[in-house]
């Protein structure tokens, strides 16, 4: 159950999504991926994708215009 951080600050869509897809594929089931973003549309499409894939997702608003999308790899 490892925890990984993915720094996507300053990246615009769709780069955070593509990066998260790639990174999550490398992880083991049960691992946590924390995607750090400051692009509001990534706050929509990253969780949308992860939930559709059947993973557990939580969004934390850590600061003004900054979010952490916490994804637990389920399968």
């Amino acid at each position: 159950m490892a925890e990984y951080e993915l720094d996507c600050m300053g990246e615009a869509c769709p780069i955070p999504l593509v990066k998260a897809e790639k990174k999550l594929a490398e992880l083991n089931v049960g691992d946590i991926l924390i995607v750090q973003i400051d692009h509001s549309c990534a706050m929509k499409n990253v969780p949308e994708w992860a939930r559709k894939e059947g993973h557990n997702v939580e969004i934390d608003e850590v600061d003004d215009g900054e979010w952490e999308v916490v994804i637990e790899k389920m399968h």
Binding site: M9, G10, E11, D38, S40, D63, D64, G65, E66
Partner: peptide, 9 residues
Amino acid sequence: SQFKIKKLK
């Protein structure tokens, strides 16, 4: 309250 000046990467 989502205003942020983003850094150039």
